[in-house]
Design a binder for these strands. Structure first.
Lengths: 121, 121
DNA sequence: GAAAGTACTTTCCAAAAGGAAACTACCCTG
DNA sequence: CAGGGTAGTTTCCTTTTGGAAAGTACTTTC
């Protein structure tokens, strides 16, 4: 009786499949170099304009900021509202739904901090 | 008294800076298309060989698997041990340190699942 | 000694991501 | 009407990422 091999599947239980898919979904929505910075900034100071964000997020360019904001808005994580002020302005804010990412962001930050300490001492 | 503008900085408190950096660290370590799949698979079935992983992780190629395993090993999240069996084999396993990612992975999965439900209904 | 299995590496290429700089367009102030 | 602020878009380019296919090397089985 030889051990049965080939095409073995450890993680192909429905539960694992769903979890893997869910993680891919999340990472896809939060992909790119700037999503977390933008979300983090909007969670702190809500109601920021385009130029505010350009100044807050060090290193980002207007093209990237514009694209990332569109991505986040299309996923309903942030809102974009045009205010008809004297020189028309736009305000970006985190949505209720965007705030549900807080535990995720917190875990990532917590792990990163712990990692630094474990490596450095 | 006009509102003071220019060079304003909402999130440049030391606390925010540290958090942002920590998130970047974490995301950098877990970057790429396959890290979570590999970690998830090794958290489930520990002690898997290279060919096992190739079969478990649908779609990955040997080049990517090899590279991602090296990344994860260099960050001490997984271990690679050569067993001197008849035809020499290699076993990959999650480390104690790698297991500390479990809460992070769980949050990502949880959020992804909730997101699907909120979108789909 | 050919086939098949383990564990990779190498090469070659295509697509995606990201950035700098310039440009549009409109408004207000001096 | 020049200068500066708002909010972006467009172009062009480089870097990064990822994948398919083939190759290496060594071993066991038929």
């Amino acid at each position: 009786m030889k051990a049965m091999k080939k095409k073995a599947v450890v993680n192909n239980t429905p539960v694992c499949q769903v979890r893997m898919q869910a993680i891919s979904d999340t990472m896809s929505i939060l992909s790119g170099k700037w999503k977390f910075h933008i979300l983090g900034t909007l969670i702190e100071g809500d109601q920021l304009g385009f130029m505010d964000l350009l100044r807050e997020i060090e290193g980002i360019g207007s093209k990237m900021l514009s694209k990332e904001l569109q991505d986040l808005e299309s996923n309903h994580l942030i809102s974009r509202t045009v205010k008809d002020t004297k020189p028309i302005t736009v305000k970006y804010a985190i949505t209720k739904h965007g705030k549900t990412l807080t535990p995720v962001i917190d875990e990532l930050a917590k792990w990163g901090i712990a990692y630094r300490q474990s490596v450095h001492g």
